[in-house]
Structures are given as C-alpha cells and as structure tokens.
C-alpha cells in the first residue's frame, strides 16, 4: 500500500506541496508571530459587528457585564500578549 502510494500519489502532490513548503520555510520569524496574532484578532473581533439582539438573547440583564463582545476583547488581550512575547 505504502509503496503504491509513494509511486502514484506522492510525485504529483510533491510537485504542488514542495513550492508551498519552500515558501513557508522562507517566511521570517517575526511574520509567524504576526500571522498568528492576525488570526487571533480576526478570529475574535468579527464578533464586534454582531447585532446587540444576538449578543443579549437570553442574557440575565442587558448591561455591560453581560455584553459578550466585551468578554471577547478581554479574552483576546492575554492571548495576544502571550503570542507577542513567546
């Protein structure tokens, strides 16, 4: 099975994947950090555009303490610091 796949599947996939891996290898270290932090920010901050109705649906009260958009921002800060430092 492995030999068959090595002969049939690996060559065409290698032709596609090797340039991609070469490109990823050449990315400088600070850009890894920027990419990860960008993903963290993008993965979280889109929630700021959610409607107030969808944020508070079922909430015990409609104050800032129950505003989940604020929770997301507070959640993001320590994670961004961690990835910026380490």
């Amino acid at each position: 099975m492995k030999t068959f796949l090595e002969n049939t599947l690996v060559p065409p996939l290698k032709a596609v994947l090797d340039p991609l891996h070469g490109m990823l290898d050449s990315v400088p270290e600070p850009l890894w950090r920027v990419s990860v932090c960008t993903y963290l920010v993008a993965g979280a901050l889109w929630t700021l555009w959610l409607s107030r109705e969808s944020i508070f649906r079922g909430a015990p009260l409609e104050g800032k303490i129950c505003d989940l958009r604020i929770w997301v921002v507070l959640l993001l800060i320590p994670y961004l610091l961690i990835y910026a430092i380490f």
């Binding site: 990860v36 993903y39 993965g43 979280a44 929630t47 649906r57 997301v72 959640l75 994670y79 961690i82």
Partner: peptide, 18 residues
C-alpha cells in the same frame, strides 16, 4: 490549549451554538 482553543471557541460560541 491556546491557539488551538481560543479562536475555535469564539467561532463555535457565536456561529454554531446559536
């Protein structure tokens, strides 16, 4: 536990959970 949890949990909370 960090990158492998946080964006996914936010995404799941606001897209999949509702």
């Amino acid at each position: 536990d960090w990158l492998g949890s946080v964006p996914a949990m936010i995404f799941v909370a606001f897209i999949f959970v509702p």
